[in-house]
């Protein structure tokens, strides 16, 4: 894997049904997510997705690429830039920005983010994963 390698992107519709399912799963019933009447009076005018629900697409993308190394060694640092409104479609994207050989293995740093359908960045950040030496050896970098 080399710098500039693009990870396979993941597209997802953020439906109100999914937002409500995430509220159940996370225990976060903030009305900005689940109460359309409250949300209508907010600065967004409608319900928005939980930030961590949207960020899950980045983790899914990293898991698809790095399999069990991601949940074992992954590091994620993100900023939530813009709310994702109910009904919007988002796309998680990533590109390898740095590859470093370390004693423990190959450290791969990816510039990651989630864009909304209009191209606006909803999330920006960095994800790092360590591929253990026995696997990483010979993988480039």
């Amino acid at each position: 894997m080399e710098e500039g390698y693009k990870l396979s992107s993941i597209e997802r519709l953020v439906s109100q049904r999914r937002i409500e399912q995430y509220a159940e799963a996370s225990g976060d019933f903030n009305p900005i997510h689940v109460d359309p009447y409250f949300a209508a009076t907010s600065q967004f005018g409608t319900t928005i997705a939980h930030g961590m629900m949207v960020a899950a697409t980045i983790s899914e993308m990293m898991t698809a690429e790095f399999r069990a190394d991601w949940p074992s060694t992954g590091r994620l640092k993100i900023r939530f830039r813009a709310p994702v409104l109910s009904g919007e479609t988002v796309t998680a994207h990533g590109v390898v920005s740095r590859v470093r050989r370390r004693d423990e293995g190959l450290e791969i740093v990816c510039s990651v983010g989630v864009n909304k359908q209009d191209g606006q960045a909803a999330i920006t950040g960095e994800a790092t994963v360590l591929i253990p030496a026995d696997v990483g050896r010979g993988a480039g970098g």
Partner: peptide, 8 residues
Amino acid sequence: HAGQELEF
């Protein structure tokens, strides 16, 4: 939610 850092 403005930002999040995670280390697995």
